[in-house]
C-alpha cells in the first residue's frame, strides 16, 4: 500500500472522527433538554404538558422517520444557511446533527423514564422544585442509561457519516465508495471496513466502561 494511500486513510479517519464528534456533542447538548422535557412533560409527570409533549413527540418521530440519505439532500438549503456552504465535511455536520438530536432525545427520554418514581416523590417531599428534581435526581440517576444511549448514538453516527459523500462530505465512507468501489481498489475498501470496525468497537468499549464507572446501583468489591 502506497504512502499516499495511507495518508488518505489517515485523513479520512480524522474527518469521520471530526464529523461524528461535533455532531454527537451538539446533538447531546440539544438532545438532553429535549429528551428530559419529553420524559417530564408526559401526563401526570413533573412538568405535565400532555399537548406540548404530543406535538414534540410527533416532530421527533417525523425527523426520525426520514431516511438519512434523504435528510441530507432535503435540508441542503438549511445546511447552506448554517454552514455557509452545502458542500464539504463541515457542511455534512449539519444533517448529522439534525439526525442526532431526536435520536439522542429519545434515548435520554428512555433513560430518565427508567428512574424509580419513588425518588421523584422523595425529592418532592423534601420541597424540591421541578428543576432541582431534574438536575439533582433525574439526570444523575439516569446517567448510566444516558451514557449507554450516547454510545449507541456515536455508533449510529459513524454509520450515517458514510452517506455524507452524497453532498461532498469526506471521511471513511466517502473514501470507500470513491476508491474502493468506483476505482475498483479492494485493498482500500478492506482498510476502510477494518478501520470502521475498530472505531465502533472502541466507541462501544469506552462507552460501556464509562457507564460502569458512573453506575453505583450494583454492589462491587471495594478492595480489601
Amino acid at each position: 500500500m502506497s504512502a499516499n494511500l495511507i495518508a488518505m486513510l489517515a485523513e479520512a479517519t480524522w474527518q469521520t472522527l471530526y464529523m461524528v464528534a461535533v455532531a454527537t456533542v451538539i446533538g447531546a447538548l440539544c438532545g438532553l433538554p429535549v429528551g428530559t422535557f419529553l420524559a417530564c412533560s408526559r401526563k401526570g409527570e413533573l412538568l405535565s404538558a400532555p399537548l406540548v409533549n404530543k406535538v414534540l413527540g410527533i416532530v421527533v418521530n417525523a425527523t426520525r422517520s426520514v431516511p438519512f440519505i434523504i435528510l441530507v439532500v432535503a435540508i441542503i438549503p438549511f445546511t447552506r444557511m448554517v454552514a455557509g456552504t452545502s458542500i464539504g465535511t463541515t457542511a455534512a455536520i449539519v444533517p448529522l446533527t439534525i439526525a442526532a438530536i431526536p435520536f439522542i432525545a429519545r434515548l435520554i427520554e428512555n433513560a430518565i423514564r427508567e428512574v424509580d418514581s419513588g425518588l421523584i416523590e422523595a425529592a418532592r417531599a423534601m420541597g424540591a422544585t421541578p428543576l432541582q428534581i431534574i438536575a439533582k435526581v433525574l439526570i444523575p440517576e439516569a446517567l448510566p442509561g444516558i451514557t449507554l444511549g450516547l454510545t449507541l448514538a456515536v455508533v449510529s453516527l459513524i454509520g450515517y457519516s458514510a452517506m455524507v459523500g452524497a453532498v461532498g462530505g469526506e471521511g471513511l465512507g466517502d473514501l470507500g465508495i470513491r476508491y474502493g468501489y468506483q476505482r475498483f481498489m479492494p485493498d482500500v475498501m478492506a482498510m476502510v471496513v477494518v478501520i470502521l470496525i475498530v472505531m465502533v468497537q472502541l466507541a462501544q468499549s469506552i462507552g460501556e466502561w464509562i457507564a460502569r464507572k458512573v453506575d453505583k446501583r450494583a454492589p462491587r468489591n471495594r478492595g480489601a
Partner: peptide, 30 residues
C-alpha cells in the same frame, strides 16, 4: 415540606449518591 420529613418503605435513596450525599440532598435543595 421542609418542615415535614418523610421516610419510605423502599427507602427511595439515590443510587448515584453516597450515604453522606443522600443525607446532604435536602440541604442542597433548601
Amino acid at each position: 415540606r421542609r418542615d415535614v420529613g418523610m421516610i419510605f418503605q423502599h427507602f427511595n435513596l439515590l443510587s448515584s449518591r453516597t450515604v453522606l450525599g443522600n443525607v446532604a440532598l435536602p440541604l442542597e435543595i433548601a
